[in-house]
Each structure stands twice: as structure tokens, then as C-alpha cells.
Design a protein around this nucleic acid. Structure first.
Lengths: 149, 149
DNA sequence: CTTGACCCTGTAGTTAGATACAGGGTCTAG
DNA sequence: CTAGACCCTGTATCTAACTACAGGGTCAAG
């Protein structure tokens, strides 16, 4: 058979069967042909397309952004500079998240180092640091940390 | 006045007024006394408690985990080892997220370096890498990246 | 011809951490 | 006494990327 059912495509591309319907709704996978009984029949190359989606996601692109990349990819003779631009922008946002996470790591490391774990709760330097943290080394940490998503 | 209204507490502690009701529902802030007109009256030290919540959040603790820390803190004569354990565990999970993010950064960096942006879309090495990414250097990247939250 | 695996649609639920709104009551300055 | 600022509750909405479910139809083996 040259075509795949939804379940076959799910198995072949390693995603959940429901995710495929979701991708179709989001326009990430083109609406496939249907059989007389209204079953989806996917062409083989849809496997590759789903791989692309997972690959771009693994690089930190949201499905919205993946859709944009797919639109760019759809015009193969155009220059690929827009793709490069998006990759650079994503790299930059990843760098920012790294900075934020490293600040958190540094703060946690300092606290863990400083606390013996032997004293009573009321003298705990870790708890004290949390009390102070609204204005501290990891300031606006919440904002930055939230930004990690 | 020795007590604060909800709006005053929100301003004093730098959170949204609705967040306070949310925290109360989650048990992070104790239910305050009420006036005859059913208005909340917070004792001054609630400001400190909200600071603690924001501080712990900034270090990467979820509200669920913050609640646990608050329960630990509530018994001031007990040993603070459990707090240290939780900080160490959080540090470890932050390290893992860092590893994942650094792998993503490395992959993006390699792609951005390799692509001139001058060629046509159909030869784009970035797009090709995404096609291959279900089994690549950033493998199971989705899982790891999702894990960043 | 029945059983079980698969497929269809539409809708609702999940996670986390809030934020927003509707429809009321209260309080205070002028 | 009234305008506007504040407070109350309960419920809905948001983001992202799915996942689950109900209630039905289809198909292939035995």
C-alpha cells in the first residue's frame, strides 16, 4: 500500500495518534485524502514531515514557529536566509534561558554549600535566603525562570 | 493599622491581588481574619511570607514545593536537613535542564554556523537537520526540552 | 455473522500559575 | 448622599501541546 492510515503514520513517525489530528487542525500536516469510508490515507512522505516537526521542536521551536518554517520550506527555490534568521533568533532566546538557569544554579549551589543541614530550622540559611530573595542576586528570578518555557 | 487589606498586601509584597486569593486557596498563605464586612485583614508578617514564596519560586520551586518548604519551616526547632535535601534535589534538576538546554544551544549553533543563508531553500542545511532530528545529536530532544518547564 | 481492532467526529480535560470577569457589597471623601 | 475606590464570591479564561472520552461507523478474520 502506498498510503498509511492514521495509526500506521503514528507508529511510523513515533507520535501519538491523536497528535496527528491535532497537527492537522494546526495546519502542520496537510489534510490527507479520504477513503470512501472517510478514513484518512496519508502519503508516505508525511512520515518525513512529522519527523521535521519533531526535529524542529527538539531545537526549541514551538508548533507555531514550526508552521512558519514549513511555510518557508514550501518554496524551495527561495533563498534560505529567513530560516537562518529564525534559527539565530531561537539561538539567542536559548542563550537567554541558559543565563537565567545558570543564575539559578549558582544561587542554589551557594545555598547548598553554605548549609550543613545540621542546624535547627530557625537558623536555616536556605530558608533565610528565600525570605530575602525578592531583592537578591537572583532578582526578578521568577520572571526569568518563568521565561524558560 | 496593624493589618493589611488584600490590596495593601498585594502592593506591599509585589504580587497581583488575585494571586493572593489563589495562594490562599493553595494553602500557601493562611486564611486571614475577617472584618465584620467580611474583608480580609492580613497581619504584617504575611508580607514576609509572600516574599518567601516569590523567593523560593525564583529558585525554581513550584508552588507545590513551596508549600512543602513552608510546612518544614513551620517547625523551627527541627533539623533543617530536609530543606537541604530539597535544595540539592532542585539543584540536580536544574543541572539536568541546563544540560538539555546546552545540547540544544550546541545544535543550533552548529546549524547557524554552517548555513550561509545565501543558498536556496531546497539545499538548506538547517531544514535538512530538522528532517533528520528524530534520530540525531539532540535526540529525544523534545522530551528533554519539554522537561525544561 | 460476530468479535475485536481500527477509524470517525466533537468536546472536554490536563498542567501550572495565575488573570479576568460578572454581579454584587462596603467604605470614604466631599 | 453619591461617586468612585475598594472588597467579596464563584467561575471562566489564558498558554501549549497534547490526551482522553463518548458515541458512533468500518473492516477483516474466523
Amino acid at each position: 500500500m502506498a498510503t498509511l492510515t492514521r495509526g500506521e503514520l503514528a507508529r511510523a513517525s513515533g507520535v501519538g495518534i491523536e497528535a496527528l489530528r491535532y497537527y492537522e487542525g494546526r495546519g502542520l500536516v496537510p489534510k490527507p485524502a479520504r477513503t470512501a469510508a472517510n478514513y484518512r490515507r496519508y502519503p508516505q512522505d508525511t512520515v518525513q514531515r512529522v519527523h521535521f516537526i519533531k526535529g524542529a521542536q527538539a531545537l526549541g521551536f514551538s508548533l507555531e514557529e514550526v508552521a512558519e518554517l514549513l511555510r518557508l520550506r514550501a518554496r524551495p527555490t527561495k533563498n534560505c536566509a529567513p530560516v537562518l534568521r529564525r534559527a539565530e533568533a531561537k539561538l539567542e532566546s536559548v542563550e537567554e534561558k541558559l543565563q537565567a538557569l545558570m543564575a539559578v544554579r549558582a544561587a542554589l549551589l551557594a545555598l547548598v554549600d553554605e548549609c550543613s543541614g545540621a542546624g535547627p530550622m530557625k537558623n536555616c540559611t536556605i530558608l533565610e535566603a528565600m525570605d530575602r530573595a525578592s531583592r537578591g542576586a537572583t532578582d526578578r528570578g521568577t520572571e526569568r525562570w518563568e521565561g524558560l518555557r
